[in-house]
């Protein structure tokens, strides 16, 4: 294992130090492992708390700031944070208008956030609602799975709902908006290589040089299928087609994200975006906005994912609203 780290067990603590050193507009609670805005938002506005295992940077800490999250709870690598972290963050950021928990659909994340909401409710002080993001079309949402994973759409949802929160919308409004976004977006990912979890010390899986994994999530887990390595165009087809088969985007505008898994350089991500955009256009999908880069990663995994969100005028204008975070910034 070759990594720029001090020790596997210190990765998270050390990375949090670097995040704090890099971003004066963030405040890091090192003991609690929560990243906050240095300047809290106004009283009477709903706050957004997200969190999850580490190793997906810039998600979630890189999306704390104006127009997105109020706090991000960092778990160990690929391990959901604990209820006490979320509970502390929830109490800390509440401005009297309630707190929305943005949770990616994984058994661990859901259970830990559930326990946090129970604890917060027991203290009876904070109104907590939860949106569970589950956009990964690689997984069937059935009795035989833990449901669809929450992947790339989380980034788009945090941006859009964060913008709406900034406008002073109510917690119920934001829940409805979150459900709308979650209903209208789909993702699909692939891997050329495994990632290496620092504590494990070796790649999570072995992948021969002529094979790739299709339908991976963001935890270095093997995908749904192992298939022969293909060129960018055919990889793009294998990502786009399951998305289009799952949801009819009609002719409505969309926001498309081509996301890198962490170990894939930008030149390849742009190349893939070119292929994805061409295929979507061929299918009559209109791309109104896009994002190309590393936004929700899986440590050093090489690979990418595609997210497509059907976006009406409301979503587009929330997308375009100013945002000022480490990971996404425009309009100010």
């Amino acid at each position: 294992m070759k990594k720029l780290i001090n020790a596997p067990e210190a990765v998270l603590a050390d990375a949090l130090k670097g995040i704090e050193a890099a971003h004066a507009d963030l405040r890091v609670d090192h003991a609690g492992r929560v990243i906050y805005r240095a300047t809290p938002k106004d009283q009477g506005t709903v706050a957004l708390v997200s969190g999850g295992g580490s190793g997906h940077e810039p998600l979630h800490g890189g999306f704390v700031g104006f127009g997105m999250l109020d706090a991000a709870c960092a778990g160990e690598v690929f391990t959901s944070p604990t209820p006490d972290q979320m509970q502390a963050a929830t109490k800390e950021v509440d401005r009297g208008a309630g707190v929305l928990h943005i949770v990616k659909n994984y058994t661990g994340d859901v259970m830990n956030f559930e326990m946090a909401a129970e604890l917060a409710a027991m203290e009876a002080s904070v109104d907590v609602k939860t949106i569970v993001v589950n956009d990964d079309v690689a997984v069937q949402d059935s009795l035989y799975t833990a449901g669809r994973r929450g992947v790339g759409l989380t980034v788009l949802l945090e941006k859009i709902v964060g913008a709406a929160a900034e406008q002073g919308r109510s917690l119920d409004d934001l829940v409805a908006l979150s459900e709308k976004v979650n209903g209208e977006g789909r993702s699909m990912g692939m891997a050329l290589t495994s990632c290496t979890v620092p504590a494990a010390g070796k790649p999570t899986f072995d992948l021969p040089d002529d094979q790739m994994e299709i339908g991976v999530g963001i935890h270095g887990e093997p995908g749904r299928h192992r298939v022969p390595l293909a060129d960018a165009h055919h990889i793009a087809e294998q990502l786009v087609e399951p998305i289009l088969a799952d949801l009819d985007f009609g002719s409505s505008p969309t926001i498309v994200m081509l996301n890198g898994m962490g170990g894939t350089p930008l030149i390849e991500l742009y190349l893939m975006y070119g292929e994805v955009a061409a295929i979507l256009q061929k299918h009559g999908v209109t791309i109104a906005r896009n994002l190309v880069g590393n936004y929700i990663t899986s440590l050093d995994m090489a690979g990418c994912s595609v997210t497509v969100l059907r976006a009406d005028d409301e979503l587009l204008s929330l997308w375009d609203a100013p945002v000022e975070t480490a990971g996404l910034r425009w309009g100010r």
Binding site: E9, V77, T79, A199, A200, T204, P222
Partner: peptide
């Protein structure tokens, strides 16, 4: 335990339980 979790999960069950 982490090796078992590598095969069908996310390679952290051993370190989770140890921590």
């Amino acid at each position: 335990l982490t090796e078992l979790d590598s095969a069908i999960g996310d390679a952290d069950h051993g370190s989770n339980m140890a921590r």
